[in-house]
Amino acid sequence: MWWYVGKRLLQAIPVFLGATLILFILLKLRPGDPILNLAGNKPVSQEVRDALAAQYHLDDPLFVQWFQFVKSAITFDFGETFAGQPVFDLIKETFPVTVTLAVMALSIDAILGITLGTIAGLRRNGWFDSSMLVISLAMLAIPIFVLGFVMQLIFGVKLGWTSPTVGSDWTIGDLILPAIVLAIANFAYTIRLTRTSVAENLSADHVRTARAKGLSERMVVRRHVLRNSLVPVVTYIGINLGSLMAGAIITETIFNIPGVGNAAYTAIFKGETSTVVAIVTFMVMVYVLMSLLVDLVYAVLDPRIRYA
């Protein structure tokens, strides 16, 4: 088990370095004076210029700059916004609501997706299965921002069940609707994957053997079908985090949630590329870390991995 953990950790390092390299190169590709870019295109004095150049190692060779980029990324030093606020402070302010939103969406996705997928898989080709197929395909086809907008219009504006926008003094209740919107985007995949996995396991040899032992149908399904089907699903839900984060940018924008995604959107809107890159770098770090965690969960779920 520990060898596996160690190996996985070691593998994450080049991936993280590579990802930061890509982001770093993109940042460097920006046209114009890097100092002006950093300062938000305001005229600056020579002293400020020198100070900025020293702070960001602009005169050093590129790989040293990259090294500094990585170093500041892992020490959460993401520079400043044009307005002069450290980006990490901005992230600290906005992160809690995004995490809350993501956890809510992930729970909705996992609970509903696995439950519905399991029922569909157990009654394969029945009416429930067929209607789930239609619903999940439709959900895949509707872009999240259209969906978010329609939901906002119906539940927020027309029915008035929740406030259509969230604002800075958010509560968990405010986040329910955005979380549902965010969950639905991945939900369709979760249902389909669970269904396939359950259906496959139902016809597995070892399930027949379990029946032959005299286990009750409930026990067979719980211990041998569901348990085995969950392994790929849990992995998948972890990978989903990536699209969840991208989705957060859109959902937060629509519902005006003061999260990291919204901050990114504002930065894009204002053309603050360095802030955008900083926020995305942070998100990629979270993502790499989460994929690592998911792999470890995978090892807990499947003994064959532990000893690999």
Partner: peptide, 24 residues
């Protein structure tokens, strides 16, 4: 390993960065 690196950046996030840069 190379594909792992590109895979580690969520698609939409990556495009956001690339296009913000290219827009400039």
């Amino acid at each position: 390993r190379f594909s792992d690196i590109f895979f580690s950046i969520p698609l939409l996030l990556a495009c956001i960065v690339v296009i913000s840069v290219l827009n400039n």
